[in-house]
């Protein structure tokens, strides 16, 4: 199989380039893209990429594979390879540190902005803050996010304004805390989002939904935030 892979080492390369590598895939096996990267690294140890859990839990091996973002460890070749060719690029829109490794600071800054922790101004109870099963259910489809950045780096609005638009991942988390019955800072959180960029740069293109490896739906969460903002204003 032919793998065309994005290479860039700022210490030796003037500009990034695509390198074509022939990789022998063992017969009768549907390898994951991460396994292919492993085979390639055996041939060329200078190849750099991130990975950790290798089972779609840590969110560190987000890549652009044949044009679509996803996690290399849970994407089988059969799902992405076309005409026996695989093009591997770093996540789009973020600065490249080396090869497939990108600088995620901008992404994390947006995450930090939405205050991703429970705020409760009431005195802490002796054991723990309880929640009804119904209230807990509201967090399903939100808390599972692994911050892999596949969605935000597939979002054109995030490409153009990564410093101002929170992006699908951050907004999904913003809604996760807005929807939490134990959080008392709802109004402050909404006030922080009510500008023309943070939420309203979302154009509903839904690239985020189509790439999320966890099957989450940031666009729906963004719609909920918009409704909450609307209700707060009326």
């Amino acid at each position: 199989m032919l793998v065309s892979i994005y290479r860039y080492n700022p210490e030796t390369d003037q500009t990034p380039y695509m390198q074509d590598v022939q990789v022998d895939i063992p017969d009768g096996k549907d390898l994951m893209v991460l396994d292919v990267l492993g085979l390639m690294k055996e041939q060329d140890t200078s190849l750099a990429y991130r990975r950790s859990c290798r089972e779609g839990v840590c969110g560190s091996d987000g890549l652009n594979m044949n044009g679509k973002n996803g996690l290399a460890c849970i994407t089988p070749l059969s799902a992405v390879v076309k005409n026996n060719k695989l093009v591997l690029r770093p996540l789009p829109g973020l600065p490249v540190i080396r090869d497939l490794v990108v600088d995620m600071s901008m992404f994390y800054k947006q995450y930090e902005k939405i205050k991703p922790f429970l705020i409760n101004d009431k005195p802490a109870p002796a054991i723990e803050r309880l929640q009804t099963p119904e209230d807990r259910e509201k967090l399903d489809g939100l808390y599972e996010c692994i911050l892999c950045a596949c969605c935000s780096t597939a979002c054109p609005s995030f490409w153009w304004n990564p410093d101002k638009f929170v992006g699908p991942s951050g907004l999904l988390q913003a809604y996760r805390f807005l929807a939490d019955s134990r959080d008392t800072a709802t109004d402050q959180r909404l006030a922080d989002l009510d500008d023309p960029f943070s939420v309203f740069r979302c154009r509903g293109i839904m690239n985020c939904v189509s790439v999320c490896p966890k099957g989450l739906n940031p666009t729906r969460a963004i719609g909920h935030i918009r409704n909450m903002l609307l209700q707060r204003a009326t």
């Binding site: 101002k164 922080d192 500008d195 023309p196 943070s198």
Partner: peptide, 14 residues
């Protein structure tokens, strides 16, 4: 909150 320089209503919702 991101400062909006010249948008119409200074609020994204508006």
């Amino acid at each position: 909150m991101v400062a909006s320089v010249t948008s119409l209503g200074r609020s994204g919702l508006y």
